[in-house]
C-alpha cells in the first residue's frame, strides 16, 4: 500500500514544471483531464484548492489568503462584491486574446461591465423540479414550491441558501429584489413562514440525491443538477416558472496580488477556447458563455430540456447585491425562517 501511494504522489507532480499556477475553485467543477491538458500544453504546474460556497471563499480570502492564489471562480454577485472590495486585479483586452470568444450577451455584464476582471466560466439557472410520477398537475408557477398542492406538501426540498430562497420567494410575490418597502418585506416574511410547514428539508448539496432517491418529490434545484437527476433515472421535470427564475454565472477572476499573474492570464485565455469551454460544460452539465462550443458538446447536453428552455419563458434575473442596511432585513427574514 505504501509503495503504491508513494508511486501515485510522484505521478501527481510533473517533473518539468516551468512555473506554477494556484487556482481557488469550487469542489468538482473542473475535469482533471482539462487541467492535465493545460499542464501539458504550457508546462505550468497547476495546484487547485477548493471551497464549497462563495461566502466561504470570501471568508478565507479575507482571513489572509489573498495573495496566495492567482484565480478564483466566484458567482456573478460575488464578482461585484470582490470588485467593490478591491480584491480583483484587471487585465487589458490585449492580454486576453480569446476575449472575443465570449458570447456578446455575456461581454457587458452588470457585475463587471466590459469584462475587465473576469471571464465567463459556466452559467445556469435556479428554479425547481418536480417528480412527474408523483404529481402530474400544473407546475408552471412558483406556487408549486411556496403554496404546494397536497400531493407535494411535506415532500419538498428547498436549497439551504439564503439568496436563492429569498429571491425566488420575491419573484413569486412579484416584489423587487433589495426592496426596503416594509409591506413587501413583511409579506415575504409571512409567505415564507407559511410555506415552511410544507417543506421536508433544506439542503443544497443533497438537492439532486433527494430527488433521485425519492426522499423529496419536488425541490429547488440548479438546471444542470436537475439534468443529472434525470440522467440517474428520476422522472423529474425542470420548470422555468412563469414568475421568473434566477440566472447565475460563475466567472474566473484574476485575483489581486496574484503571485503568477502571467500564468493566470494564460489559464483564463485557455478556458475561453471553445474546445476547452465545451469540456467544462460536458463535465458540469451547465452552459458556457463562449461562442462556438456546440460542435464539441455531448449530444445529451446539447439537447437537454434543462439547458434549452422554450423561447417564450419569462426571462431570469441575476441576484442583486443589496446594500448593508437592506441586507440586514433579508438576514433577519432568513433567521426568522430557520429558527
Amino acid at each position: 500500500m505504501r509503495k503504491l501511494l508513494l508511486g501515485t504522489c510522484l505521478l501527481a507532480s510533473p517533473a518539468f514544471a516551468e512555473g506554477e499556477l494556484k487556482v481557488y475553485h469550487w469542489f468538482e467543477y473542473i475535469p482533471q483531464e482539462l487541467v492535465d491538458k493545460f499542464q501539458a500544453e504550457t508546462g505550468i504546474a497547476v495546484t487547485i484548492d477548493t471551497y464549497d460556497s462563495n461566502e466561504s471563499m470570501l471568508a478565507a480570502l479575507k482571513a489572509g489568503r489573498l495573495g496566495e492564489y492567482d484565480v478564483a471562480v466566484p458567482a456573478d454577485f460575488m464578482v461585484g462584491i470582490m470588485i467593490a472590495d478591491g480584491m480583483l486585479d484587471s487585465f487589458t483586452p490585449e492580454e486576453m486574446p480569446n476575449l472575443g470568444n465570449i458570447e456578446p450577451k455575456w461581454l457587458d455584464v452588470p457585475f463587471d461591465p466590459g469584462r475587465k476582471h473576469s471571464i465567463p466560466y459556466q452559467w445556469g439557472s435556479t428554479s425547481f423540479s418536480v417528480n412527474r410520477d408523483v404529481y402530474q398537475g400544473d407546475i408552471s408557477s412558483l406556487a408549486t414550491i411556496f403554496d404546494p398542492p397536497p400531493e407535494l406538501s411535506g415532500k419538498i426540498n428547498v436549497l439551504d441558501s439564503q439568496n436563492e430562497v429569498l429571491i425566488l420567494g420575491s419573484l413569486y410575490l412579484g416584489i423587487p429584489q433589495c426592496t426596503q418597502d416594509r409591506e413587501q418585506l413583511k409579506a415575504l416574511n409571512d409567505m415564507l413562514l407559511a410555506a415552511k410547514p410544507h417543506w421536508a428539508s433544506f439542503g443544497s448539496d443533497i438537492a439532486k440525491d433527494v430527488l433521485v432517491s425519492g426522499d423529496a418529490a419536488a425541490g429547488m434545484i440548479y438546471n444542470g443538477f436537475s439534468a443529472k437527476a434525470r440522467a440517474e433515472g428520476a422522472n423529474v421535470e425542470y420548470v422555468y416558472p412563469k414568475e421568473g427564475h434566477v440566472v447565475w454565472m460563475d466567472n474566473v477572476v484574476l485575483l489581486k496580488d496574484a503571485p503568477n499573474r502571467d500564468h493566470a492570464l494564460k489559464f483564463m485565455n485557455f478556458l475561453l477556447d471553445p474546445v476547452n469551454a465545451a469540456a467544462v460544460t460536458n463535465y458540469a452539465a451547465y452552459t458556457s458563455g463562449v461562442a462556438g462550443v456546440e460542435p464539441y458538446l455531448d449530444e445529451a447536453i446539447k439537447t437537454s430540456p434543462e439547458n434549452n428552455p422554450p423561447a417564450d419563458i419569462t426571462p431570469g434575473v441575476f441576484a442583486e447585491a443589496c446594500d448593508e442596511e437592506t441586507q440586514k432585513l433579508y438576514d433577519a427574514i432568513w433567521t426568522n425562517l430557520k429558527k
Partner: peptide
Amino acid sequence: PDLLGGAKTFMIGSLIEEQFKGSQGN
C-alpha cells in the same frame, strides 16, 4: 442535524457556521 433532520431549524453549530460561511457574513 442538517443531513438527517433536514436543516429546518438552526442549531448552535449551523448558526455559527452561517455567520462565517453563509451569506450573512457576520
